[in-house]
């Protein structure tokens, strides 16, 4: 009886506490079950699809034309791959969904970090390159302290104004 009571109390606390602690966060479902690993294994670099990381703040998501560069004719029998051509027929871009997000008040530039700061993609994005199906949440969830720790470690600015906008 006691054990059941204890279990119930824990359950109630857990659900209630969950509501209080965790912000609503929905899992990300991509329109196509994209396999990062297959692409990397075939010798593609991150920049093949996220082409702007070395020039701009936003790394960018692949345009349909980028996909069609290889997938205009089927390479596999995967129904997921077929979806690319279905989007092409409808003349629509693939509605990729954003996985990693920044708060609106932060300025973050990929060029600055990856090209000028020589930081590997994995440092922030984890092992997404090894994923075989689209993850529904980022492997690493960065907090401001993570940014600051890295900035301190590398001896670069910790001025609030350098990132906050």
């Amino acid at each position: 009886m006691n054990r059941i009571l204890l279990f119930t109390v824990i359950l109630v606390l857990a659900i209630g506490g969950g509501y209080l602690v965790a912000k609503p966060f929905s899992g990300v479902v991509q329109p196509i079950a994209f396999n990062h690993k297959v692409h990397i294994d075939n010798g593609l670099d991150c920049s093949a699809c996220h082409e702007r990381y070395s020039q701009a703040a936003v790394a960018g998501r692949p345009k349909l034309t980028t996909c069609l560069f290889c997938h205009e004719t089927p390479l596999t029998e995967s129904p997921e791959e077929e979806k690319i051509r279905q989007y092409a027929e409808r003349g629509e871009e693939i509605p990729w969904r954003r996985l990693t997000r920044l708060p609106a008040h932060v300025y973050f530039s990929h060029r600055r970090h990856v090209v000028l700061g020589q930081i590997a993609c994995q440092t922030c994005h984890g092992r997404i390159g090894q994923s075989t199906s689209p993850p529904s949440r980022p492997e690493i969830q960065l907090k401001m302290n993570d940014c600051l720790a890295c900035h301190r470690q590398r001896g670069v600015t910790t001025d609030c104004n350098a990132c906050h906008r």
Binding site: A14, Y19, A22, G27
Partner: peptide, 18 residues
């Protein structure tokens, strides 16, 4: 959820939002 609750209520938002 239960496992989370047992280990000091370290609930991940992800799990909760499912």
């Amino acid at each position: 959820l239960l496992a989370g609750a047992a280990s000091g209520m370290m609930l991940s938002g992800y799990a909760f939002n499912k």
